[in-house]
Amino acid sequence: MSTRQKDDTDLIAGIGLMAAAAFFGWQTIGLEIGTSLRMGPGYFPMILSGLLFILGLLVTIKSFGREGEPGTPIAWRGILFILPAPIFFGLTVRGLGFVPALFFTTLIASQASVKMRPMYALVLAVAVTVMSTLIFSYGLGLPFRRFGPWLPF
C-alpha cells in the first residue's frame, strides 16, 4: 500500500471498468445508432458503454482518500490448470471423442492443486471418466462419440 491514502483495488477496478467500456464503445462503432423511434442496433450498446464508463470513472475517483484492504494471493497455479481444462475439452471432444477428452480434462484440472499426487490424479481421472461415460453416454444417451475420428480404431 502506498503512503498516500488510496484504495488500490478500487483504483484498478475503476480503470478496468473504463477499459471495458472503451472496448464495448469501440465495438459499437460501425453499428447503426438509429433514432428513438427506430433504434438501431448500436443505440442501446452506445448508451450502456457510456454509462459503464461514467461508473468506472466514479469508482476511480472514489478510490482516492480511502484506505484499501490488503489483497489475497493470486491462484496462479489454479489459473494455469483450471482454465485450460474446459478449453481442452472443447478442442478435443469431437476429434478424440468423449472418453479420452474427458480423461485428459480431468487430469489437467487435477494438477491445479499442490496437494494432488500424480498417481492419485491418474486414478481419479480414470474413475471420473468411467463413471461419466456410464452415466452420460450409456445412461442418458447423450449423443457424444465415445472415441472420435482422430483415433486409429
Binding site: A112, L124, A125, S132, F136
Partner: peptide
C-alpha cells in the same frame, strides 16, 4: 483437491 477436478469434469460435460 479431490472434489474440484470432479466438478470441473462435470461442468465441462
Amino acid at each position: 483437491y479431490v472434489l474440484f477436478p470432479i466438478i470441473m469434469a462435470m461442468s465441462a460435460i
